[in-house]
């Protein structure tokens, strides 16, 4: 149930997504499910965890994370210690040539330290979340899938309407901006007005159960049938 709620919340982004695609003059409906199945990353999808294996979205055991954090922390301490020795040596030396070399080495160590600290922050954050990467990691992968599957479908300039998965509810219906008006008028401005009310639509998605589908080949959309 909770997972479904998450999905519904994420689906609310759909309303912000469509304007990108509102530029063409022809209409098509695409079976996203079939498109997604074609992508090689889908073979790595683990339905049990809802994550992609061998990617940043994969859930990491806490024990492994603790080992990684300890290792990075030790490496940072080594780098700091090395810098400390370099500074001490340069102060004792007093030679200008030594100073230049010292700063060059310090610069190198600092770049390495910046990498290590960034990694440490990532690992610690993941550890705080008990090894479960945030949704942003999933979105990165979803974004890649989108770019490699959905975008080519829109390359022709056609307006693409999504068939939403079925949930128990009725289509979003707002007082002045009924999405169904768009299906009849085929006017991009109507859709844009509708989408401008993203917040309200997002709240209504939990009550939505019918696919929003439009096909230029058919006079009646699925949404209108109900």
């Amino acid at each position: 149930m909770r997972q479904r709620k998450n999905i519904l919340q994420m689906l609310s982004f759909f309303v912000a997504a469509v304007p990108l695609l509102v530029s063409g003059e022809t209409f098509r409906a695409v079976d996203f499910e079939r498109l997604l199945q074609k992508h090689p990353l889908m073979r790595k999808y683990d339905p049990e965890t809802g994550r992609f294996k061998e990617t940043k979205s994969e859930i990491i055991p806490v024990e492994n994370l603790q080992k990684r954090v300890a290792s990075i922390t030790a490496e940072i301490a080594d780098c700091e210690s090395e810098k400390s020795e370099l500074v001490l040596a340069a102060m004792n030396s007093g030679e200008a040539s030594t100073e230049a070399l010292t700063w060059e080495k310090i610069g190198q160590i600092d770049r390495r330290l910046a990498e290590l600290k960034a990694r440490l922050q990532t690992e610690q954050s993941l550890l705080a979340d008990k090894g479960v990467p945030g949704y942003d990691k999933l979105l990165e992968i979803a974004g890649r899938i989108y770019h490699e599957t959905v975008l080519p479908e829109t390359a022709t300039g056609a307006l693409l309407l999504n068939k939403l998965p079925r949930f128990a509810a009725t289509p979003p219906l707002l007082a002045d901006n009924d999405l169904r008006r768009f299906f009849f008028s085929r006017n991009g401005e109507v859709l844009e007005k509708y989408l401008a009310q993203a917040g309200k639509i997002a709240l209504m998605f939990e009550k939505t159960d019918q696919p929003i589908l439009y096909s230029a080949d058919r006079e009646v959309s699925d949404a209108k049938k109900h």
Partner: peptide, 18 residues
């Protein structure tokens, strides 16, 4: 499963906007 990925793909569309 597909529903989840589908939702993620849609969400990614939004995240691509600047």
């Amino acid at each position: 499963m597909l529903v989840t990925i589908f939702a993620l793909v849609l969400a990614a569309v939004f995240c691509g906007q600047t």
